[in-house]
């Protein structure tokens, strides 16, 4: 049994790198990522698990990082948008978002990409209905989702574009 007070030292893996943090027990993962690790690609849209902008993978499962305590992540593996690909070497899924016009203001994009990535990890050949269902927890106000769905289908089909 682990028991600590006020701040707790916690170590976990983020995008393949081990990080050591000292956080308050009520610090959310999204705050730890954004404030302590300066990984601001993960967005906070609502703070209550309703918009999906803060989606990350925790031990391979997509979660809202606003609903995870940083202290819970001890020993865990966290994957954020910054770990998926980088400029000049985007992940094919990220590239599909670019090539299919799935990005407008872009605020929902990192969470959307992470949720789609989690889907494709579990189900590499999803139907359109699968994609819609996998992304139902990710709100977008700009695109109307059509091109986001197209992008995920394109990535699943191995091509950059979905026509």
């Amino acid at each position: 049994m682990r028991q600590v007070s006020d701040t707790i030292d916690v170590a976990f893996t983020v995008n393949g790198e081990t990080v050591h943090l000292s956080v308050s027990p009520d610090t959310s993962l999204v705050d730890a990522l954004r404030d302590d690790l300066e990984l601001t690609g993960t967005k906070q849209g609502c703070g209550e698990g309703e918009c999906g902008a803060c989606s990350v993978l925790l031990n391979g499962k997509v979660v809202n990082s606003c609903l995870v305590l940083a202290v819970e992540c001890a020993g865990a593996e966290v994957l954020t948008i910054e770990g998926l690909g980088r400029m000049g070497k985007l992940h094919p899924l990220q590239d599909a978002f670019v090539q299919n016009g799935a990005v407008q203001c872009g605020f929902c994009t990192p969470g959307m990409v992470m949720a789609a990535y989690a889907l494709l990890q579990e189900n590499p050949s999803p139907s359109e209905a699968d994609v819609r269902r996998a992304l139902e927890g990710n709100l977008c106000r700009c695109t109307g989702y059509r091109k986001i769905i197209d992008a995920v289908m394109a990535a699943a089909n191995g091509g950059p574009r979905h026509d």
């Binding site: 028991q3 007070s5 006020d6 027990p25 009520d26 809202n64 609903l67 305590l69 202290v71």
Partner: peptide, 29 residues
């Protein structure tokens, strides 16, 4: 929140829960 307890057994959980102001935390959603 000052304390975080990661219980490994039910015994640990109920013991920690007996502290004042303690709450069981599962999914957190």
């Amino acid at each position: 929140t000052k304390t975080y307890v990661a219980a490994q057994t039910v015994e640990e959980a109920v013991r920690a829960l007996s502290q004042t102001g303690a709450t069981i935390f599962a999914g957190g959603t």
